[in-house]
Design a protein around this nucleic acid. Structure first.
Length: 368
DNA sequence: CGACGTGTAAC
DNA sequence: CCTTTTACACGTCG
């Protein structure tokens, strides 16, 4: 009989990634707080913070914050503000991900700066081995690319992710299977990966403050509040239960969104922007990805998002479906008379991948 | 059930 | 005075 061995999974998170990469090529900003920004281009300083380095975080400057707020926090201090350069970060990321993949039996990149490595086979259940691997990986990335990362090790993706959050930057945290419940127990629910502001608020209002409070509340009670599905999800997060495999997933959708120079209700202005976004998306599609559903995304002056979508005969060229987008725009406008839009976007979904001969292929969507 | 729209979450 | 991209769950409608 072969008992199913416990898995060992590493979560690798590149520290303050965009900022770290900038510090590498801009030695002059080292030792200073640095803020990497997405400028929206409508006014000076309109836009949001993509990443800040740890010195900037000490000033309270965090990802997602409006640039104008960050500037206020930086007032009088020597803080460097830089625009994002995604192309460059993607190059660096790609090289690092290639390094990481070498160390894994199974590999899953989850974003530009994060990946899971299943090392169960090569470490045969030995956490010492996994820890050594993590140190080797950290050293290798430091040596080859000059940046630090934080690694979490645990028996599942979720636990490794939570472990990694414990010590940053340049951290290494191991949570063994028998330690999982204790490790999570006293964490505030909002700290659990997958529990955001809304759910945190809802849990708190029930008197549920820490992870341990969740199972203590009882599954039936949770189900009344959250429904069967989410209730069991919450309980699993509290107890560190996660069987999801480390595997590269196919993309389900691709989208592009942009901020308008000025708020508008004008179909022609919107159409023009949509047409730009289609051209941009085509660079990604490369005539290799076909789609069956298109969506128009709108964000109004109050930052409320709405979508209008339509399933169409399969297409592989975003620009070729511009007439359908025009229809969606007109539909949206007639259903929302006078609504001022701030941002507009497009999305294609129902994707399938085509090979060189234009034939449909099964997997491989994640390559693009 | 498939299509569509919204909400939540994470980066 | 607030970016961008993706995923997924869920409610609703026909």
């Amino acid at each position: 009989m072969f008992a199913k061995m416990d898995r060992i999974i590493l979560h690798v998170d590149l520290d303050a990634f965009y900022a770290s990469v900038e510090e590498l090529r801009r030695p002059d900003i080292r030792g200073k707080p640095a803020v990497v920004c997405v400028y929206s281009g409508r006014t000076q300083d309109s836009g949001a913070v993509a990443t800040s380095n740890y010195l900037a975080r000490e000033l309270g400057i965090r990802a997602g914050m409006p640039i104008a707020f960050a500037k206020r926090a930086a007032k009088g201090k020597d803080v460097v503000f830089l625009p994002v350069d995604m192309e460059h970060y993607r190059e660096v990321s790609e090289r690092i991900m290639d390094l990481l993949e070498e160390h894994a039996d199974r590999f899953q990149q989850v974003s530009i700066d994060e990946a899971y490595l299943d090392v169960s086979d090569r470490c045969t259940g030995n956490y010492q081995c996994a820890e050594k691997m993590a140190r080797d990986i950290k050293e290798e990335i430091k040596e080859h690319e000059g940046i630090t990362c934080s690694v979490g090790i645990g028996p599942s993706k979720y636990v490794s992710k939570m472990a990694g959050k414990k010590r940053k930057p340049d951290g290494l945290t191991v949570v063994r299977p028998e330690e999982v419940v204790d490790f999570l127990r006293n964490l505030p629910v909002g700290k659990l990966h997958g529990i955001g502001a809304k759910t945190e608020e809802e849990l708190n209002s029930l008197g549920i403050k820490t992870a341990a409070d969740i199972p203590a509340y009882g599954l039936p009670g949770l189900e009344k509040e959250f429904g069967k599905n989410k209730a069991s999800l919450l309980r699993d997060k509290a107890l560190g239960i996660d069987d999801s495999p480390v595997e590269q997933k196919d993309k389900q959708q691709l989208s592009r969104i942009a901020t308008l120079k000025e708020d508008t209700t004008d179909a022609d202005i919107i159409y023009k922007k949509i047409s730009d976004l289609c051209s941009d998306l085509n660079k990604k599609l490369q005539n290799k990805i076909a789609f069956r559903t298109i969506s128009l995304i709108t964000i109004d002056t109050h930052l409320q998002t709405q979508t209008r979508s339509e399933t169409i005969p399969e297409a592989d060229d975003a620009c070729s479906v511009l007439p359908s987008y025009r229809t969606l725009i007109d539909r949206f406008l007639s259903e929302n008379p006078g609504k001022m839009l701030r941002r507009v976007g497009i999305r294609v979904s129902g994707l399938s991948f085509k090979d060189a001969k234009g034939k449909k292929e099964q997997k491989r969507l994640f390559d693009y």
